[in-house]
Design a protein around this nucleic acid. Sequence first.
DNA 1: GCCCGGTAGGAAACCGGTTTTCTGATGGAG
DNA 2: CTCCATCAGAAAACCGGTTTCCTACCGGGC
Lengths: 373, 373
Amino acid sequence: MIDPPVPTPRPERARLIDIAREVGVTKSVVSRVLNDDPTLTVRPETRRRIWAVAQRLGYRAHAGARALAGAETRALALLIPDLGNPVYSRIIRGAYRRAREHGYVVLLAEDTTDDAADEAFPELVEAGRVDGLLIASARPDHQLLASPRLSRVPHVFVNREVPGSGRNVGMDLPAASATAVRHLHALGHRRIGLVSGPEELQPARARAAGFVAAMRELGLDPGGIARGSFDERGGAGAAQELLRGVPDLTALYTSTLGQAVGTLHAVRSLGLRIPDDVSVVAYDDLPLADHLDPPLTTIGMPLLELGAAAVDAVLRQLGGEPPADVVVPTRPVVVERRSTARPAGRQEVAGGEPGPPRSAATGRSRARPRPPR
Amino acid sequence: MIDPPVPTPRPERARLIDIAREVGVTKSVVSRVLNDDPTLTVRPETRRRIWAVAQRLGYRAHAGARALAGAETRALALLIPDLGNPVYSRIIRGAYRRAREHGYVVLLAEDTTDDAADEAFPELVEAGRVDGLLIASARPDHQLLASPRLSRVPHVFVNREVPGSGRNVGMDLPAASATAVRHLHALGHRRIGLVSGPEELQPARARAAGFVAAMRELGLDPGGIARGSFDERGGAGAAQELLRGVPDLTALYTSTLGQAVGTLHAVRSLGLRIPDDVSVVAYDDLPLADHLDPPLTTIGMPLLELGAAAVDAVLRQLGGEPPADVVVPTRPVVVERRSTARPAGRQEVAGGEPGPPRSAATGRSRARPRPPR
DNA sequence: GCCCGGTAGGAAACCGGTTTTCTGATGGAG
DNA sequence: CTCCATCAGAAAACCGGTTTCCTACCGGGC
């Protein structure tokens, strides 16, 4: 016994040549059969046997070898700024699914502000692990945007536009604001405030623009806008500013679900009730909305489609087409829960004019006992 | 002009041979210098120049070529069951960081129940994209667990044990329960209920076992346990069951933050106040806890360390060590917010016996006006 | 003067695919 | 019967690294 049993010397993967040997052809034939090379002519019988053996052996091409041979990696990288934010989980899922339909894998990387971002790009793109790049919610000061290295790889920007890039994949944000405003207007609200986001962020501006346009169109004063960060704290601050500064305010539209959570706090801390005194609508419909108190009326956005569209766009670039901006056509929808109602008249607007009948809320709409005050 | 300008024929990556040519050596020398091959002897001057040129050209080895040449991919895959759950985002972050410290990349894949799971494994492991695998919260019926293909790649189970695998990386769950129980006991609670998870899930059992042990140790009756799924709905159901079935109950400990959200709903829907009538403590400290109403007292777990430990464990396997179970040593801590207080006496327990002074809450611990009753 | 050992690096095989070019056999047309 | 086209597949180069083995040079000891 000179040779002790080695632990794991053989990877034991089936290789092209294993199939070739078993079928009795060369590996080039196997490769071309499995890849449907149209320039190859083989007997149907041989073709069938190759497929059968590949199946039986569980063959899968070595991604590295394939990439090395000049073909594609068949992988895309998706850079996400914050995996703790559930918005992205839907975009990711949409991207995954579409990628799979095209035989691609999506490699996810968190692209936080700190130095980790420096690494994700070189480790994935420059190490040749991926063919293309999806960048979600790029910050305007993202160092990658200025880098010439970025331009050498097909890429798109998802969920936050980079103006002038011609590679933006987005949704109709103004339409989302209009949907929210029109819903509130239909309920009878006239003074509506917008809890907006940081002015330097394009989506914040787009939602604000849509808000202003929709308000004007309905003949309402679009002046009630306050800004804060996209998180709970920002929402609380902006909501407080609006509730204190805008007289007769009966409804708030927030730019993120996080802001909505802060808004709920702010409203209550001022001793007001939701939706009795103030209705609240939030952009983005996520599972959390169901479990807030009260369950939150939201604007549902096509996030799955957004992820899918981003994959489509980058695959088009891989196919040789020039990059182009894309807007997902699906329209925002109102997901009505219990944070919106007709204005009861926080002050003099006590009279109830007729409005559209309230549609059935999602979830159990058990009657909630109202404690006397 | 026979040859029109081709779009992007040259990847324009710097290769080993580019460096070699510029320095005036062969690529084998460059490779060995950059990889610190101890069997190589070179003049310090040559070594220096190689590094300098590599730096200047922004050289990065092609991952595929490296993997093909028998070396490692320097990538690990992390399978996550649900990217919408923020618990995982912390584990992921911990794993990323530790991996980077060792020069590895983490490729993330969502491993949902549906067919997508079938693809993640072959696409990442069998395509040779990764050297090892971290599997988070494997369900006991996960088809991968039975597959012999899994045993051929180094892997660990994170956050949910697979009994007998000898590859579990976990935290001290019983200690978490004990921490919660002791905290509530110190506040004066005597009847404490556990909102537990599905019995077939190992973490649910571990938390329940720790709960029972801690209760017994304090001479309390550990009988108040109800089960539900780990989400909001399960928490609401189990909490309701406990609040209705267990007399004199003054505190609830929930097994997840999601269950806590459901529990808050259930408590309120029975007309009880938090923390005045019922205190609530949740397992897992996440940002959301700060923004619930009231902000939730939680048991903070070492999730970053868990992710890091999982990476360490799989890297040890790559280094040739046999797999072994790991328990992250960091102890759970109480993150006190406003969902816990001394029991006011939901019924006859009205008298206030002295207890330990309330520690300072994280965040603003603004005095909370208690409305008269 | 010769041999020896260390220093500094060269040469080449190999990993597992892809792709282009080439060849042998067959069969039908003329 | 011969020739050419087509069919079916073979052969080999190549991608960019890693790794093992080899070699040329140099100085010193005997």
